[in-house]
Design a protein around this nucleic acid. Sequence first.
DNA 1: ACATTAAATGTAGTAAAATTACAACTTTCA
DNA 2: TGAAAGTTGTAATTTTACTACATTTAATGT
Lengths: 282, 282
Amino acid sequence: MNILEKIAQSKSAFSKSEKKVAEVILANPQTAIHSSIATLAKMSDVSEPTVNRFCRRLDTKGYPDFKLHLAQSLANGTPYVNRHVDEGDGPQEYTNKIFESTMASLEVARQSVDINVVNRVVDLLTQAQKISFFGLGASASVAHDALNKFFRFNVPVVYFEDILMQRMSCMNSSDGDVVVLFSHTGRTKSLVEIAQIARHNDATVVGITSAGSPLANECSYVLSLEVPEDTDMYMPMASRIAQLTLVDVLATGFTLRRGNKFRENLKRVKDTLRNSRYEKRD
Amino acid sequence: MNILEKIAQSKSAFSKSEKKVAEVILANPQTAIHSSIATLAKMSDVSEPTVNRFCRRLDTKGYPDFKLHLAQSLANGTPYVNRHVDEGDGPQEYTNKIFESTMASLEVARQSVDINVVNRVVDLLTQAQKISFFGLGASASVAHDALNKFFRFNVPVVYFEDILMQRMSCMNSSDGDVVVLFSHTGRTKSLVEIAQIARHNDATVVGITSAGSPLANECSYVLSLEVPEDTDMYMPMASRIAQLTLVDVLATGFTLRRGNKFRENLKRVKDTLRNSRYEKRD
DNA sequence: ACATTAAATGTAGTAAAATTACAACTTTCA
DNA sequence: TGAAAGTTGTAATTTTACTACATTTAATGT
């Protein structure tokens, strides 16, 4: 587990002086890994053995071992999980926190993806007669994005923002059609209804939503993404990004399945856009 | 750069004994990071100063510093550097690669963001009479998402997919209006025109695009995101996610600027959605 | 082939860093 | 208030890393 996270969490288990050490390390971890125990002790205004005890409390063998763990936590661009934005943060702080927590969420999401389902869904998509992408609210833009991606593949793909259009579209669906539904919570009533309608019309329904939700129960296949809740801002943030990344994964799987020739075709699609762009001169 | 790669590459620059050290480290790097210079010397059958010289040749300050670098390289099982999807990849591989390269891109993007501009743009947004979000193609869904976010803030916010609507909207803009334009390349002609129209009508134009592009030149403020090119798939992937994360940053800055009371208001907006959802029972 | 020089490696001593043992000081609760 | 548990610091010890220098090995020219 990420040791910075661990420090933040076990704060209550620390003694007064140990907390001082924790503060200093959390404030500038990059400095910490390049300091000796003596300098860190001085920075935290405690004695050297206190720093040592601090390290052991975190289940490391001692200071050098702790530094190693710290270095690893800082290495992989997935620094602090759960770095929530708070009131007093300036632009520098909140910007970093948002980026970092987004990355952390992606890491969690990555580990929660069921590869077998991914593979199965890619299968379905490559064989689909028609693909529909629907989502409401924040997930609408995810569906929108999926449309954009799959549109390039020259397959029949459908996306509606309007809930009634979505319903009508699903009513007209049939065997061989795939309906992909996006919803973080999986509790949006209208979307659950759409899933039901689509299934009654023999379409295959894929839900990109949270496991065990009402929507998940109505789907033929569920790609569940475990994403730390964005409780702070009352806005969906990380969940959306995880969904989009999953769309990238599906799109990538799709192109790989279609093979090399198909990818050349994609390049042509991109080239077509050239006329609508200003040339890049190097 | 990953130090293990570096060791492998600089093999020719090493002396005979140094090569022995390199071998041992490459063979079992996990052991190496937990060994002292003495044990590593014994394992490699060389003297301690040789190990030390080996470390310096790799541009580290000494053995402890080298261990730090090594630990970072080992963190997270070869982190995400240049992990491009290729032909033979199975679902497991391409899923991981996509997630990892997305995270890597976010890290790069984070470092390239100009905090001062972020702060300035948040300023503008909080004071705007009307906010418009426009983007075309892949960036359309980003604009769509921005709409969704800022709509919750109860500020006049506008988004159109249709290029003509976008133009008309910009023609009607006036002093105090802020137009935010999304484009990865910044070379889409119609979007550059929109920037010009908006500026002629005294609106403030914010570009979320690449620095130095034609679009950037037409904007009052440019939030440039440096994102590694997604050359592989001929599809915008990481750039999009970086833009979305930046939208999150702006939205967060916005709410922070508006203060605590405002955030309670956000909570109410969220609660309003409750009726359209199935209850969650724990 | 041998001498001369440069490079590489190791030995031994030194400095620095981390850890331990223990003493002094706080806090807690009867 | 005073004993016990917990916390923190001082000083000594041990471990670790580094430096200076001596020795060996390799390279080059005569």
